[in-house]
Amino acid sequence: MLGRLAEEHATGVLTRERGVLYLVEGQVVHAESPATPGLDVLLTSRGALGSEGWWEAVSQAGPEHRVGRFLVDSGQLAAGALELCHLGALYDAAFFTLGTSSGPARFRYGVAHWIGPVRPVSVDAVERETLRRRALLHRIWPDADSDTAELVRTGRAVDAVLPPRQRTVLDQVDGVRTAADISLVLGRPGFHTLVDVRRLAAAGIVTTRARTVEVRAPETAVPAASPVSTALVSTASAQAARAAQASAEPDVALLRRLRDALEAL
C-alpha cells in the first residue's frame, strides 16, 4: 500500500496498528507511534525547547499546519536542529508503524498533520531504514519478545563496565515496564531503547516476565507412598544413581562447553 501511495503522489494519513504515517505528494512528512516519544517530548526533554514555547507554537500555528515553521520563525529553534530532531522522530515512529501488525492498514486522503512541512522523506528511504533497523536488532539478539513484553532482571551480576546508556535503561527495569514505557520515562527514541534492551537480553541480564513464569516448575501435591512403591522408587533411584555416576564425566564436560558457548554470546 505504501508503495502504491508513493506512486500516486497521494496526500493523507496511513494508519496501522502501531502508528501512523503522514504523506504529502507521495512523500513521508511525519510519523507517530505510541511505542516511542513524539517530537514534542524529544525537543523538550533534551532542553532544546521549553514546554511553554512548544504549546505556544501549537496554539498559534497548529490550525494552519505550520507549527514547525513557527518555531523557526519565532527564533525558538534553529532550522537545522528542528530538521535533525524531526527526522529522528520520523524514522523512529515509522519503524514501529511498519512493523508486524495483525490489524488492517487504512489510508485517509487529504489529512494533514499540524506540524506542517519540515523535511519530506521518500517512501524508499523510510523502508530502507526500517529494514536496516530490523536487521541490526536481529544481529544483536534474535528474540523479539523483549521489544514489547514486561521486562525483569535475571539476577545475573552486572559487569562494572556496562555502558552508561544500558545502565540507564537497566535502572528502569522493574518487572512492569516495557521498552516503550522506558522510552517514555527517559524521553529517549524508542529504537535506541530496543537496542539497549536487546543487548542486555543477549548478556543474560534482562529477560521477559512471561519467560520467568514459564521456567518455574509447577507445584503439585505429592501422594503418600506405599511401602511397595517406596521400595520400587528406592531401587530405581539406586540404579539411576549408578548410571549417573558412570556417565558423570561426559555430562560435566558437555555442560561446561554449553556454559562457555553461552557466555561467549
Rank of each mutant, 00 (worst) to 15 (best):
Leu2Asn: 03
Gly3Pro: 11
Leu5Val: 00
Glu7His: 12
Glu7Ser: 14
His9Met: 12
His9Gly: 09
Leu14Glu: 06
Arg18Ala: 02
Tyr22Val: 06
Val24Glu: 10
Gly26Asn: 01
Gly26Asp: 04
Val28Tyr: 00
Val29Thr: 07
Ser33Leu: 11
Thr36Glu: 05
Pro37Tyr: 01
Asp40Glu: 08
Val41Tyr: 03
Leu43Ala: 00
Ala48Pro: 09
Ala48Val: 05
Gly53Phe: 08
Gly53Lys: 05
Trp54Arg: 09
Ala57His: 14
Ser59Gly: 12
Gln60Thr: 09
Phe70Trp: 15
Leu71Asn: 12
Gly75Arg: 04
Gly75Ala: 07
Gln76Thr: 06
Gln76Tyr: 11
Gln76His: 05
Ala79Val: 09
Leu84Ser: 08
Leu84Ala: 11
His86Val: 02
Leu87Asn: 11
Leu90Asp: 05
Tyr91Ala: 06
Ala94Leu: 13
Ala94Gly: 01
Phe95Gln: 08
Thr97Met: 12
Thr97Cys: 15
Leu98Asn: 04
Gly99Arg: 13
Ser101Gly: 13
Pro104Ala: 07
Pro104Met: 00
Ala105Phe: 06
Ala105Thr: 07
Phe107Ser: 10
Arg108Ile: 15
Gly110Val: 07
Ala112Gln: 04
Gly116Ser: 01
Pro117Met: 04
Val118Phe: 04
Val118Tyr: 07
Arg119Val: 01
Arg119His: 00
Ser122Val: 00
Ser122Leu: 00
Ser122Pro: 03
Arg128Lys: 10
Arg132Trp: 13
Arg132Ile: 09
Leu136Asn: 04
Leu137Trp: 04
Leu137Val: 00
His138Gln: 15
His138Met: 14
Arg139Asn: 11
Trp141Asp: 11
Trp141Leu: 14
Trp141Lys: 12
Ala144Tyr: 14
Asp145His: 14
Asp145Ser: 15
Thr148Arg: 15
Leu151Cys: 15
Gly155His: 10
Arg156Gly: 08
Arg156Ser: 03
Ala157Tyr: 10
Ala157Met: 01
Asp159Leu: 09
Val161Phe: 09
Pro163Gly: 03
Arg167Ala: 01
Leu170Ser: 03
Gln172Asp: 03
Val176Leu: 06
Val176Lys: 09
Pro189Met: 06
Phe191Gln: 12
Val195Leu: 01
Asp196Arg: 08
Asp196Glu: 13
Arg198Cys: 14
Arg199Ile: 07
Ala202Tyr: 01
Ile205Thr: 01
Ile205His: 01
Arg209Lys: 13
Arg209His: 09
Val213Thr: 13
Val215Met: 15
Thr220Arg: 04
Thr220Ser: 02
Thr220Ala: 08
Ala221Ile: 04
Pro223Met: 03
Ala225Leu: 13
Leu232Ala: 10
Val233Gly: 03
Ala240Thr: 10
Ala243Val: 04
Ala244Thr: 03
Gln245Phe: 02
Ala248His: 04
Asp251Thr: 06
Ala253His: 07
Ala261Trp: 13
Leu262Gly: 14
Glu263Cys: 14
